[in-house]
Design a protein around this nucleic acid. Structure first.
Lengths: 191, 191
DNA sequence: AGTCTCGGAGTGAATGTTCATTCCTAATGT
DNA sequence: ACATTAGGAATGAACATTCACTCCGAGACT
């Protein structure tokens, strides 16, 4: 019944190594030894490396969305909700830099390009939260009338770049700065 | 005297293949055949693949900056200059999608991480234009007072994401939309 | 209770492939 | 003729994937 345990170890190890060394510098043998399993074992859980890589990505989304939705209240005013979503996103990646590094590499690579039509952050059930939120904001005339995709880019593009800088240690983010940044994002999309 | 010619072919071929298939799916043999040269020839021009990859990146910057600076007039008002820079950046990548795909992959990879402290767009002489521009904008109280890095993220993060969407064909950008987008970026950073 | 059998999870050495790089020969120019 | 440049087969290293084997626990049998 401990199936999950080994599988989790493999996923954790793969995340660590790929985030740090890229898809390149992450041979199966290395992942296996970091996970404390035999190389062959990985193939008992994942048909091949590509599939491991995709599953890993979905795994991150499955942790990210619940985190963001914590304390999200769709009854609150638009601006307040935006600040919540933006901050939560920023915070999640700051707290989980490996996830960020991984997502970043994944998106830039051909693996990620396969996700094409699916929006940058998620395409599962949860995605609807963002969807609905922005659509409501637009119809309430609180948010500029752009295609949804563009609104995403305006709203969260800066957030992701700021996270990168924080991880690369070129900015030091504290709570005050974070709030100011998300407010600036809001200025970008609000009417 | 045709030294340059073969070299350019190699660079072009490498750009095409890497942009499309990633650093992965771009074996030297494939680059060579696309360039119409022998595999060994590549090594007459580039010591190894890593160096080819870095040179390729620098090459892109060397084309990007002159393009952006065309018609840039540091005497014009801050807002106007910002609109110029933003549009030019967007336009360059729309016109050169391979360059964009390449830069994107490069940044997300460990190669790019080596550029750490160097700012996201350039670290050569030209970089100063952006530098100076934002510093001036801040001291004139036209632009919000954030660390320079953050200003970059707020200003150009959205632009790069929009370009990605355009290339992935999830938005259709026309001149009107482009202008509106850059204006929204301005709203994000202006006081 | 003790012994035996079976099945499936786990292993890592062996395999075959893919690749960057080298190096010797051919071609080209001077 | 000589020097320089190009070519691409040959080389060896690195890697993903496979597979023959080990190990272990849960039943079955005595």
């Amino acid at each position: 019944m401990l199936k999950t345990e080994k599988r989790d170890e493999i996923i954790r190890a793969a995340l660590e190594i790929i985030a740090e060394h890229g898809f390149h510098g992450a041979p199966i043998a290395m992942i296996a030894s970091r996970a404390g399993v035999g190389a062959g074992t990985i193939y008992r859980y994942f048909a091949n490396k590509d599939i491991l890589i995709s599953v890993l990505y979905e795994d991150i989304e499955d942790r990210l969305f619940p985190y963001i939705l914590q304390g999200y209240d769709s009854e609150r005013p638009v601006r307040e909700r935006f600040l919540h979503l933006g901050k939560a996103l920023l915070q999640y990646f700051i707290e989980n830099p490996l996830d960020f590094r991984y997502v970043e590499q994944f998106h830039g690579s051909p693996y990620g390009a396969a996700l094409r039509r699916d929006r940058i952050l998620g395409a599962r059930e949860n995605r609807d939260v963002f969807h609905e939120f922005f659509e409501e904001g637009i119809s309430q005339q609180m948010i500029k009338d752009f295609p949804l995709t563009v609104i995403f880019d305006l709203a969260f593009g800066p957030v992701l770049y700021v996270v990168r800088d924080h991880i690369l240690d070129v900015v030091k983010l504290d709570n005050v700065l974070i709030t100011k940044i998300i407010e600036a994002c809001w200025d970008g999309i609000r009417r």
